[in-house]
Design a protein around this nucleic acid. Structure first.
Lengths: 233, 233
DNA sequence: GATAAAAGATGACTTTTGTCAGTTGCCCAA
DNA sequence: TTGGGCAACTGACAAAAGTCATCTTTTATC
């Protein structure tokens, strides 16, 4: 059966968003022949903390949370990955079990690329390796900023920040509500707090006229107000 | 004037500790010819947040803190770098100003390697690039763990953890006190709390017989007790 | 559309953490 | 040796965050 044109890596526009764009046409063809496209339903796991990954996942559609359970038993979301992002790179590169779990936040379509394809490319295509290196350097910087935020900011500030992040990263729907809908529990897991406090803090923002809610959906009314809050008034 | 043998990178044992070990002899010679050895006194800065770094720093001796000021004006230490570690890699690789400041915690001796040396090596020595890549993957994992700790653990737990870390990483002096002596303010900046709470929490550990203090020096009396505390009793 | 299950929301309370104002003690330099 | 300055420490209080119990609303499913 003939494959659709866009299901071949060489033609896939997603690749432009990540390190795979450094690959040559014939390399992409090889990857395309061994990759597996999978559909993941909302709530399903792509992989679990501690698993040895057989390859990386390239997100074609949908959004996934990457989280880790702390010793205290609470889940902390460290990243939200969406279209174009590659998950599991770290684990494949360091040849260790992954330290994070990935769970779909909505229905997803991902390409699974067996790790040999990646490792061989790293060994023989310096441009590719450098692209990944630059990307990792960027991620490391983001991680440092995250650490500082978690350590030094209040729940208030962190919540304001994540609302702004969701807005700029995923945009809004026709009615102006944040396009990516997270449960209160997931928002709390990003902010690093209890669900109750997250809900309470959202209620406070609502009372201050900074946001509006409708069910679990959230609309930002005062961007610069949130920005100020984020920076500590 | 003839240089001492051990001041040449080719002969430097420090290199065995980091990615530079992936370099060939002639590459090391080139680096050695352009590198500058510097002495930094305790309290002096190697570089400041926001600076464009002209190269990387390889620590030969001494210890440095890497920190970042949060929007709230508080300093957060994200890493403690010691012998063998390379600082400033991220900034050089991503060609951006550094996001961290580096300040010496005791007298240091570092080698400054101009960035061209690093960038050229990344472009023409795949083994070197891969070594850095693996190292960064490792750092990223550590950063994720740090995030989860900051987000989900109490000051108590984080303090216990850092005491154990100081013990395993830097060891103890003849009397059994932690060999790396940090001010209470610095410990607080690692833990991500106020100096007063850090002091109070140390006093509590002392009362529980887990540690002993003498001036600013700290001795661990009950390793497994601290371990338990770290994991939440 | 009824109903059960899940998620959201709120109140009351406890614990943890932060802040401010001060005291003590130590080290170093005049 | 003395005294100024800084770091360590303490107390009292305020603010932030966590917890538990309960209730309401939404969502999913038959």
């Amino acid at each position: 059966m003939a494959e659709h044109e866009e299901s071949r890596c060489e033609n896939c526009i997603i690749r432009e968003l990540n390190s795979l764009k450094a690959l040559k046409k014939e390399e992409l063809k090889a990857i395309s022949d061994s990759k597996i496209t999978r559909r993941i339903k909302k709530g399903e796991a792509l992989f679990q903390e501690g698993e040895k990954l057989g390859g990386v996942f390239c997100v074609r559609n949908g959004v996934s949370k990457l989280s880790k359970i702390s010793d205290n038993g609470k889940d902390q979301i460290v990243k939200i990955a969406s279209k174009g992002e590659v998950m599991g790179q770290r684990s494949v590169i360091s040849e260790e079990a992954t330290n994070l779990s990935a769970v779909a936040l909505n229905d997803m379509e991902v390409c699974f690329i067996p790790k040999n394809n990646i490792i061989e490319r790293i060994q023989d295509n310096p441009a590719f390796t450098q692209a990944i290196l630059k990307h990792m350097a960027q991620e490391l910087k983001i991680a440092d900023d995250f650490i500082v935020n978690m350590a030094q900011k209040t729940v208030n500030q962190r919540l304001a920040e994540i609302l702004l992040y969701l807005n700029t990263t995923f945009g809004t729907d026709e009615e102006g509500y944040l396009a990516l809908i997270l449960s209160r529990a997931d928002i709390a897991d990003v902010v690093g707090t209890a669900t109750e406090l997250c809900i309470r803090t959202l209620a406070k923002l609502k009372k201050q006229g900074l946001i509006e809610t409708k069910g679990k959906r959230i609309k930002i009314l005062d961007r610069s107000g949130l920005q100020q809050l984020k920076d500590g008034f």
